[in-house]
Simulated scan of single mutants.
Amino acid sequence: MSSSRILLASRCATEDEISELVFKLQALLPERRRQHLRRVSRDEVLEEVCSYIRKLHKQVDDTSERISQLLASADLDADVLRSLLQQ
């Protein structure tokens, strides 16, 4: 092992720990994405996880925007609004 890898290993997770974490991340992906990622590199798994997280962020932003639009266009009192948000 090179001296730089030894230094890195002393400060960071071990290769086995990293592999285990990547495996756990891959398991969090939707089924169709997990099937697509079988026997791929860590980089590919991490890229797919990042892509999936970006997609989820976009869905949250889009949903928030839609809710804001609906609330702005509706003339609702506080009780009706509370009941909608609790569902």
Rank of each mutant, 00 (worst) to 15 (best):
V60A: 00
S68G: 14
L85C: 10
I6A: 03
D77C: 05
V80A: 00
S51R: 13
A78S: 07
R54L: 10
K55S: 15
E31L: 07
D43M: 05
E65I: 04
R66Y: 06
E15Q: 15
R11F: 13
I6R: 00
F23G: 09
L56R: 13
K58E: 09
L25F: 13
S19I: 05
L85G: 05
R54G: 13
K55P: 12
A72Q: 14
F23R: 04
T14K: 08
L46G: 05
A27T: 08
L84D: 02
A13F: 09
D16N: 13
V22R: 02
C12F: 04
S73K: 13
Q26S: 07
L29M: 14
I6Y: 01
A74F: 13
R34Q: 11
L21N: 04
R66T: 02
R32L: 06
R32N: 09
A9P: 00
D16M: 14
S10L: 09
L28R: 12
L7K: 03
S68I: 06
K58W: 02
M1H: 02
L21Y: 05
V22K: 03
E17Y: 11
D16W: 14
Q59G: 10
A13Q: 08
Q86Y: 03
F23S: 09
K24M: 15
D62V: 00
L7D: 08
R54C: 13
L81R: 02
A27K: 11
E20W: 13
E44T: 08
S73Q: 15
V49G: 00
L29T: 04
A13L: 09
S64R: 15
F23W: 11
